[in-house]
Design a protein around this nucleic acid. Structure first.
Lengths: 160, 160
DNA sequence: TATTGTTATACTCTATAACTATA
DNA sequence: TATAGTTATAGAGTATAACAATA
């Protein structure tokens, strides 16, 4: 790693040493993929949230609607496991979407413990609108990254 | 987008329709880079946290130590701006690290309002240990992604 | 016994606003 | 007046544990 020289701590910082450097160095972080993944993720969330603010749909809510749409009748446990959300957290998340009449928790015919999740008509409409808005978010990512790098990123991360 | 057919909602799901599908589809999320960026970020944090649990250093604390190490004497505002952390949150973060004697908030000679941040000897030692442990985390990422894709990801995200 | 949905708790993170002391 | 550090607050996310109903 080419960071080894600086990480010894003895070599001189890049700018003026007096008090507070104006150009702040990332140091070790330059060799940490996680740092840059987090920065990208923060940017993506901010852009996504602002674009979907008009319909008041968060990234988590979007993912919930999308997965229910693609798997009508699935249970809360299955949904939670798919999205990596705690069952306990999902309860409140679904409760709010149900209050907004975007989905319903129907009794499962086969298993009395389960709920079968379904989007309402309004839920489908909101999801369609959310898709349109988030398509523009995706377009912005393509524009910033370039189409080839965007594709490459999407495929690489999808496999991970 | 090859998701357009399914997103119409009319075509049949991939598995049994009866009650709860075992194979849960991601639907729209397959075309959302942010979804996969978040999943990678969650995996990275979990791996990082478990590897550095022995020295009780979180990702945020690691980034703070690394940037102070690389920019001795910088102020809290500069640090906050660099890492995208709120000044208000940084206060508590630094307080704990100072309690653990990993860093000190020295009075800035030039500006009475500022603190000049410095790692202590112990702080440098802990950072060195954190670097060693997180190097293994990074190795694991290289192993999972393959060296070429790791390099490509790091360079792409660094530029973003 | 084990699982599903639920409630409750605690801790972290994020986003604000407001205060103080310095400039 | 503006900025640096601080305090306080509220909302969301994460991680648990425990409980009732059901399997």
């Amino acid at each position: 790693m080419r960071e080894s020289k600086r990480s010894s701590g003895a070599t001189a910082p890049p700018r003026r040493r007096r008090d507070g450097p104006r150009t702040v160095e990332l140091g070790l972080l330059n060799q940490r993929l996680g740092y840059f993944v987090r920065r990208l993720q923060v940017w993506i969330f901010q852009d996504f949230i602002s674009r979907l603010a008009a319909i008041d749909i968060s990234p988590a809510q979007f993912s919930v609607l999308a997965v229910i749409h693609a798997n009508e009748g699935l249970s809360q446990s299955e949904l939670a496991a798919t999205l990596g959300i705690e069952r306990a957290r999902l309860v409140r998340l679904l409760h709010r979407l149900e209050q907004r009449a975007l989905l319903r928790r129907l009794p499962s015919c086969a298993d009395g413990r389960r709920h079968a999740l379904r989007l309402t008509r309004e839920g489908e409409r909101v999801l369609a609108r959310a898709k349109a808005l988030s398509d523009r978010h995706e377009d912005e990512l393509v524009r910033r990254l370039g189409p080839e790098r965007y594709r490459m990123l999407l495929e690489t991360l999808r496999e991970f």
